[in-house]
Simulated assay, not measured.
Amino acid sequence: MNMRRRTLIGRLAAAGAAGMLGSALAAPGPAQAAAWRKRLTGADLDTNRRWQVAGTDLGIPYVLENGSIGYLFGDTFNTPWPEGPPLPNDWRSPVMLRSNIHPGAPGGVVFDSAARVAGNGRAPELMHNGHHGIGIDGLPEVTVIPNDGISFPETGRQLISYMSIENWNSAGPAGPDWKSRYAGLAYSDNGNDFVRTPLKWWNTADNKDPFQMWTMQRDGEYVYVFSVRSGRQHGPMMLRRVRWDRLFYPESYEGWGWNGANWGWGRPCTPILTGRFGEPSVRRLADGTWVMSYLNCATGCIVTRTATGPDRVWTAEKIQVTSWQEPGLYGGFVHPWSSRAANDLHLLVSKWTRTPDGRSTAYHVSQFAGSV
């Protein structure tokens, strides 16, 4: 992940302004040592036996239209890690497993089905993927990586935000880990087959566009979209909102911005936080608490912040999982059924460890339980 050990330094564009969000300059809280609950994927688990999901990552949980939970996985293989052996190893992305088990149950998350599969059987990818070839739009595409999912009971429709990956190493060992070509939206009206829409939020040539890695959370009539640059590089976090029935209309997205006197909606986005962010995850808990999680790529820890609303003050970082607990970690996606109760913050954490010459030794997703 090319993470360097340095202190996270960030700021808001208008530090000290009335109504501003939390400042990344605040000292992170003490390590809370979230407890490892269980490993969820792997060649030795039933995810492989039942659906041929062995080596995989991410596991982004979101509420489906029927009230259960879908888990979005990125590059997925029927071998323990991406390079096999054997080869070919049935590369797919994205893939979805599902569960109606509460993550706080004694046995933790237990998957009961896979999208596009009746019972057991190979779980196929949810949408077209170029796989080092040509994407659905005729452009070169390395792979398709999910950002987040959201569903709408009013219509039965599900949406997935994704990145079309241009390359995995855009700036060498000291730079970002990858470059997306664009962020896009795909939808499904049957919960299984997702259609990639023509919508594209294009990345810039220098890989600096801050609207590539999305996380989405609905609250009332609005969906709030938090986003950062691709590649886990240093940069801003932005906040937009859009009415839930206008997600396919880019002109309807409102930015949260500072005008020199106050914060407000309908303005060009002003960074709400600055840092070296991994994939962000934001969820609204049942009691109204908003929880944000991400990999702080400067410290190598999964951290969380909380707020009373998406456009309110965010707390300082609270360390949940360290690289000593889970070497090669990333992700840290908040389960939407988490709560403020002790040890009821459930995070899906990825692990990818490699030897100095690049050979993988682990590539899977685990469940951790901490506290907000």
Rank of each mutant, 00 (worst) to 15 (best):
T7H: 13
T7Q: 14
G10K: 10
A15I: 04
G16L: 06
A18H: 11
G22M: 08
R37T: 11
T41M: 04
N48Y: 07
T56F: 01
G59Q: 07
G59T: 13
L64A: 12
N66K: 11
I69W: 15
Y71S: 03
G74K: 03
T76M: 01
N78T: 08
N78R: 13
T79I: 06
T79H: 07
P80M: 11
P85Y: 05
L87K: 10
P88Y: 03
N89D: 00
W91H: 00
L97A: 01
N100S: 11
H102L: 12
P103W: 00
G108D: 06
F111N: 02
D112E: 10
S113Y: 01
A114E: 00
V117G: 10
N120E: 12
G121W: 07
R122D: 00
H132N: 12
I136P: 08
G138T: 00
E141H: 00
G156W: 05
L159T: 13
M163E: 05
N167M: 15
A171Q: 02
G172H: 06
A174C: 09
A174P: 02
K179Q: 15
G184R: 07
L185T: 06
Y187H: 13
N190H: 08
N192M: 11
K200L: 13
W201N: 05
A205T: 13
K208E: 07
F211A: 00
Y222N: 05
S227N: 04
V228M: 03
G231H: 07
R232E: 04
Q233K: 10
H234Q: 11
H234E: 07
M238H: 06
W244K: 12
D245V: 03
Y249Q: 13
G260W: 01
G264F: 01
T274I: 13
P280K: 09
R283P: 04
Y294R: 05
L295C: 00
G309Y: 01
D311A: 15
R312P: 15
R312W: 13
I319A: 06
E326K: 14
L329P: 01
V334Y: 02
L348S: 06
R354M: 15
H364C: 06
V365R: 02
